[in-house]
């Protein structure tokens, strides 16, 4: 009995030691919560959950690229692209400034499928450029980032898109439980389902093992018979799917879409992964880690907002947290010498 208690204590201590930034932020949240009313409210909690949910989906997509020593800078623009396409297709049939007046009102399920297919295509294109044209992922996705943004501007005519079908916004902003007291946003469940799915893929499937192997040593993986090309294409394609899903949800969540949506999200996602322990040298990273990383980032934003910090300073603080988190994380590896 005592022994197991000690073990649990040691485990908790290890977790705290492993994630000093996360702990710091939780403490900060408690302090802010005590100082400001409304911080510990269901509305705020729900807000945090749904923000985190969308960012988490994007970070899951990017995590595969990072674990295989790649990256995906087109993530944010792909989210924007999906949001624009979803927005246009989900506009009400009788909406005055409907962008595609010739198009009929579409079923939002069908729209989701279309958006996902487009995301898949973008991912396949990234995977193709990285594996077949041998362009380094950083440059390849820098290129597609710009291309995707350009096309977003063209199809949206650089106009904000609104007037969505009611069912689209109300379904995605829906929640379980009463609005006033305890409730959980649907988005939270979407995030949990995909989190579990990715955990399963990363730990229990051949694809996951191949992904870690490529990140650990791509030459050795190829020599061991891993189809590295196909595995990488699959990783970038999956990432594309996740961005598309996130874009589709984000448009509904915001009640509007524009080409500039999702700008910079790739960096937030990469930062979240890195804070969560995904190693940029490859082969290391877990789904729970990514979740913690993203959550920490969103928590930080909310804390700053409640403290009434000038929003422009947010960038400064977020940047500091990224550097600090990674610096602390890296100490674990250099301390062993």
């Amino acid at each position: 009995m005592d022994n197991s208690k000690q073990n649990t204590g040691a485990k908790i201590l290890a977790v705290i030691k492993g994630n000093p930034i996360a702990l710091l932020l939780v403490v900060a949240a408690v302090v802010v919560g005590c100082l400001k009313d409304n911080f510990f409210s269901w509305a705020n909690f729900s807000n945090l959950m749904s923000n985190t949910a969308v960012r988490f989906l994007i970070a899951l997509g990017v995590s595969g690229c990072l674990i295989t020593k790649g990256t995906d800078l087109s993530a944010g623009r792909q989210v924007g692209f999906a949001a624009v396409v979803a927005g246009i297709l989900c506009q009400k049939g009788d909406y005055g400034s409907k962008l595609w007046k010739w198009a009929p009102e579409m079923n939002i399920g069908l729209v989701l499928i279309i958006v996902l297919l487009i995301g898949l295509c973008w991912g396949l294109i990234n995977g193709f450029i990285v594996t077949k044209l041998h362009v380094p992922p950083f440059i390849a996705t820098l290129g597609t980032q710009t291309i995707v943004y350009g096309i977003s501007l063209v199809i949206s005519d650089a106009q904000p898109i609104g007037g969505f079908q009611k069912i689209y916004t109300s379904l995605i902003n829906g929640r379980l439980g009463s609005t006033k007291s305890f409730h959980l946003p649907y988005l939270l469940f979407v995030a949990l389902i995909f989190g579990f799915l990715f955990w399963f893929i990363y730990n229990k499937t051949r694809h996951g093992k191949y992904m870690y192997a490529i990140g650990g040593n791509d030459v050795a993986a190829e020599v061991s018979g891993v189809n590295t090309t196909f595995t990488l294409i699959r990783i970038y394609a999956t990432a594309g799917l996740m961005y598309a899903l996130a874009g589709y949800l984000l448009a509904a969540k915001s009640g509007g879409a524009s080409a500039s949506m999702g700008q910079g999200y790739e960096l937030e996602a990469i930062a979240g992964c890195t804070i969560g322990g995904v190693s940029t040298t490859g082969g290391i990273g877990t789904v729970p880690g990514v979740l913690v990383g993203v959550l920490v980032f969103e928590l930080l934003k909310i804390i700053l907002q409640f403290l009434g910090v000038n929003p422009y300073y947010n960038y400064v603080v977020q940047g500091l947290v990224i550097v600090l988190a990674v610096a602390l994380d890296i100490r674990k590896y250099i301390a062993k010498k």
């Binding site: 093992k209 870690y212 192997a213 650990g216 040593n217 050795a220 993986a221 020599v223 891993v226 082969g283």
Partner: peptide
């Protein structure tokens, strides 16, 4: 084929013994 360069094209250093031993026979 067991390659010559153990570190370069053999082991996946940051992965476990189990992952390293099973990678080419996961099927």
């Amino acid at each position: 084929m067991l390659t010559e360069d153990r570190r370069g094209s053999g082991i996946m250093a940051v992965l476990s013994v189990a992952d390293n031993i099973s990678i080419s026979s996961l099927n």
